[in-house]
Nucleic acid binder design. Sequence first.
DNA 1: TTGAAAGCGCTAACAG
DNA 2: CTGTTAGCGCTTTCAA
Lengths: 337, 337
Amino acid sequence: MAARKTNLTTMDDIARLAKVSKPTVSRAFKDSPLVKPATKDRILAIARRHGYSVNSNAQKLRTNRTQTVAVVMHLPQQSTEHGSAPFFFQLLNDVARGLWVRRHDLLLCSPESDDAYSYEVMISSKRADGIIFLGQGPGDKWLKDLSRTSVPFVVWGAVDARSSYCTVGSDNKKGGVLAGQRFMEMGREHVLFVGNRSHPEMEQRRQGLESAMKPASKMQIIDLEIPDFTFETGRTAMTGYLAHKHAPFDAIFAGSDAVAMGVVVALLDAKLRVPEDVSVIGYNDLPIAQYFQRPLTTIRQDTYQAGSLLVEKLFQIFDGGKPPSTTVPTEIVIRQT
Amino acid sequence: MAARKTNLTTMDDIARLAKVSKPTVSRAFKDSPLVKPATKDRILAIARRHGYSVNSNAQKLRTNRTQTVAVVMHLPQQSTEHGSAPFFFQLLNDVARGLWVRRHDLLLCSPESDDAYSYEVMISSKRADGIIFLGQGPGDKWLKDLSRTSVPFVVWGAVDARSSYCTVGSDNKKGGVLAGQRFMEMGREHVLFVGNRSHPEMEQRRQGLESAMKPASKMQIIDLEIPDFTFETGRTAMTGYLAHKHAPFDAIFAGSDAVAMGVVVALLDAKLRVPEDVSVIGYNDLPIAQYFQRPLTTIRQDTYQAGSLLVEKLFQIFDGGKPPSTTVPTEIVIRQT
DNA sequence: TTGAAAGCGCTAACAG
DNA sequence: CTGTTAGCGCTTTCAA
């Protein structure tokens, strides 16, 4: 009589087969020291033989914990739409690793609406124990609203010490400083900032740039505002700028590597030499950046550490803590632009 | 007396407040026609006012359905490790959209081990109703094993009509044909295939290439085997090939865009002209491909459709069907290589 | 159209 | 170390 793998469904079945009680089976599965090793092994062997595993929904219902974290990420509609997509995927990856270490599941969500309510529901309906937001979007009103609720969450985005919620983000200011210093070393004087000052992270980078340049009284910043941070936007903005205005510039600090690459292409199309005529620095150090036409000088963020920090801080919140926002170090990667 | 938002926890509480019974509240939440609209509105209003939402774990336990699909994806350890990462993230994105349309949650997992058992546990423990595998890895023994169980799953990978499980994949053969035809039109004769024949998808592409070239008896394929499909691997393989062997070639079909870009860089380093001396075709049409030093000619796969198909077929399996494997159309994007 | 009763599969509290 | 009891919050009968 071959022990057919009839997937038994309940803990009671296993208990009966192992001639123990249900709680003992339960303990065996959570590796409790309260159960005798021999008993435990027998139970686990029987369970495995019958294809049994603990029903996680009953477990979640009973314990009132889901061991699940929701990660909310703006997924790009088209591959070209969102210039920093590769960066966010890398970050997702690193967050996934952090959760995996803590044996938590990762529920991937797109933002339903930028409205605190839908996230409150996510928690009160016990789909997840907490939320990690990858990117805070243009305005963070909804995040402020959310911070007034009891929803445990952390955010990747611009770090602001006064913020009412916990954020982990690139040291944008330092990133700007590094770019400014580099330009100064190269003797550049007119820096075009291709970004968007209403975007908090961008503004921080610009401030860093400005402060690094202060010692050199000759240096100045020219702003070129762009609505988003894609290759195409960078290219067309640059082409337009070259066609119409003529404030001279010899350096460019771009809001993202994608923008920087667009800018470089526009520059080359206009017969400007990079870096001889114009020096360009990007942001993020996308994997592509080093293989670009002109291997790109850029500011790198440590996503590995970012992922760990996001997870760690969320768990501190689970434990009743109120972890401070933190900045992740930033470094300049000097290549050929 | 302000109705404070004390988050009530159970359906019973809401039932009491609305002066109805628990089942009525349950019906109201699932928009059942059995409940009078006025009653329903009243219930929903009360629930919302008190921050109540249905406990999804109790729901899942009771109904024995999770409304969740696990997506298993090899997350790259380092950004440069896995050349096709951007492609898979795009695919993830499109799968997410498909699941969202069907109001299912997406549980993101890395492969625990390439062993059927861990996936059986995922289903028998009721974490998810089914699994979508993004990429089948080098061998698919574990997938064959899994297909002998009752685990509902579909796979993105090489489509093989004889396979025991449902696969959705690029029309690799057609992709190869398109590349071969293009080379033929350009009058190329010696095609270097930079790929890995033990990888089913690669082998299919090579077969397509070969069949397209058959009419031109002069044309021939030279194989350059590589272990993985990253930029660096492509570059070093090409550099090595140029240094040692000297079978002449005037065209290259690469296993991925990342490889193709690595190959192009090696070619240019060796003072070969692209495309004058060597024509190069990649695979995947990564967003970067068009912005590369030489905008890359490549084979594009329709991930949007792929995502929809994967989800659709999984749902057919849920409904007891046995959907056939399908191929997603493939097209050549002619740029400058 | 609504309600009463039963039970999904599990774990925590307590007793031994 | 192991067992008994109770109940997590919900939906599904079935009855009214």
